[in-house]
Deep mutational scan, measured.
Amino acid sequence: ENVVSAPMPGKVLRVLVRVGDRVRVGQGLLVLEAMKMENEIPSPRDGVVKRILVKEGEIVDTGQPKIELG
């Protein structure tokens, strides 16, 4: 899985990584606000952040790609 998608609709509060960052499985990639709760979205695997496809403040839909890992 190279693309991390939104598990639920919500607002991107914070992006916790930058392009080029090495990430580990379970590491937080971003914080999504859904139903007035903050949810940290974890990396599904070890890898390197290739692209960030969302911006802080953006509203995302379920299944929308957010971060691409290499």
Score class of each variant (00 low, 15 high):
P9V: 09
Q64M: 08
Q64I: 07
L32A: 00
M37S: 10
V23S: 01
K50S: 10
D21G: 04
I59S: 10
K50G: 05
L30T: 03
L32M: 12
G70W: 15
V19K: 06
T62H: 09
R24Q: 11
V15W: 08
G20F: 06
V17A: 01
G28M: 12
K50Y: 11
S43C: 09
V49T: 00
G57P: 00
E38V: 12
Q64N: 06
S5P: 07
L16E: 02
V17W: 00
T62P: 10
G70A: 14
D46T: 08
I67E: 01
V3E: 05
I52D: 02
P44G: 04
V3N: 06
P7C: 12
V31T: 07
E1V: 14
V23D: 01
T62C: 12
S5G: 08
V23Y: 03
G20N: 07
N39P: 03
V31Q: 02
G57T: 04
M35H: 13
P9Y: 11
I67N: 01
G57F: 06
D21F: 07
R45I: 15
G28A: 15
V23H: 02
D46K: 06
K11W: 07
R18K: 14
V17N: 01
G28F: 10
E56Y: 06
V60R: 01
M35P: 04
P42F: 12
R24W: 10
E58P: 02
L30Y: 08
R18V: 10
P65T: 07
A34M: 11
V25K: 15
E33Q: 11
R45N: 07
M35S: 11
P7G: 13
G70M: 14
M37G: 12
P9Q: 11
N39L: 15
E58K: 03
K55P: 01
K11G: 01
P9A: 13
V54N: 01
K55V: 12
P44I: 05
D21Y: 05
V48S: 05
R45W: 14
V12P: 01
G26Y: 05
I67D: 02
P44D: 06
V3D: 05
E68A: 09
G20L: 05
V49K: 00
S43F: 03
L32V: 10
K55M: 11
V15I: 15
L30C: 04
G20C: 12
A34L: 10
P44H: 09
L32S: 00
V31H: 02
E38Q: 11
P44C: 07
I41P: 01
K55L: 10
I41A: 01
D61F: 14
V25W: 10
K11Y: 07
R14E: 06
V31L: 08
R45T: 10
G47R: 02
Q27K: 04
P44F: 07
V31C: 05
P44K: 05
M35F: 14
G63I: 04
A34D: 06
I52V: 10
L69R: 02
V54R: 02
G20P: 01
V15M: 08
E40D: 06
P42V: 14
K55R: 12
R51F: 08
G47Y: 02
V49H: 00
E33V: 11
N39A: 12
G28K: 10
V60G: 01
K36E: 14
V15K: 02
R14A: 08
Q64E: 06
K66H: 15
E40S: 09
K55S: 12
R14C: 10
I67W: 03
E33L: 15
K66R: 04
E40F: 12
V48P: 02
L53C: 10
Q27A: 05
V12W: 00
K50D: 06
I52T: 01
I59V: 11
K36R: 11
I41C: 10
L29F: 02
E1A: 13
M8H: 12
D61T: 15
K50W: 11
R24L: 10
L69S: 01
K55Y: 11
L32D: 00
E68H: 11
S43A: 11
G63V: 04
A34R: 07
E40P: 07
D61C: 14
M8F: 15
E68N: 04
S43R: 01
R18L: 08
D46I: 05
P7R: 11
E40L: 15
E68M: 13
K36G: 15
V48M: 09
V25R: 14
Q27C: 05
I52H: 02
D21S: 07
P42G: 10
G47P: 01
N39F: 15
R14H: 08
P65V: 10
A6D: 04
R18A: 12
G63S: 07
G28R: 07
P42E: 08
E33H: 09
K11N: 03
G10A: 07
G20S: 04
K11M: 10
V17C: 08
R18Y: 06
V60S: 03
D61Q: 14
K11S: 03
V48Y: 14
I67Y: 02
P7M: 12
R45A: 10
P65E: 06
M8N: 07
K55I: 11
L69D: 01
G70Y: 15
R14Y: 08
I52P: 03
K36D: 15
S5Q: 09
V49Q: 00
G70V: 14
L13E: 02
Q27E: 07
P42N: 10
L29N: 00
V4P: 04
K36Y: 12
L29M: 06
V4S: 03
T62A: 15
M37H: 10
G28P: 15
G28T: 15
N39E: 10
D46V: 07
M37A: 10
Q27R: 03
G28Q: 06
K36W: 11
E40H: 10
G57I: 04
E1F: 14
I67P: 01
V15Q: 01
V60L: 06
P65A: 12
V15L: 13
I59M: 14
G57L: 06
A34P: 01
R24P: 01
M35Q: 12
V4H: 04
V3Y: 14
M35Y: 13
R45H: 10
R18P: 02
G57M: 06
S5V: 14
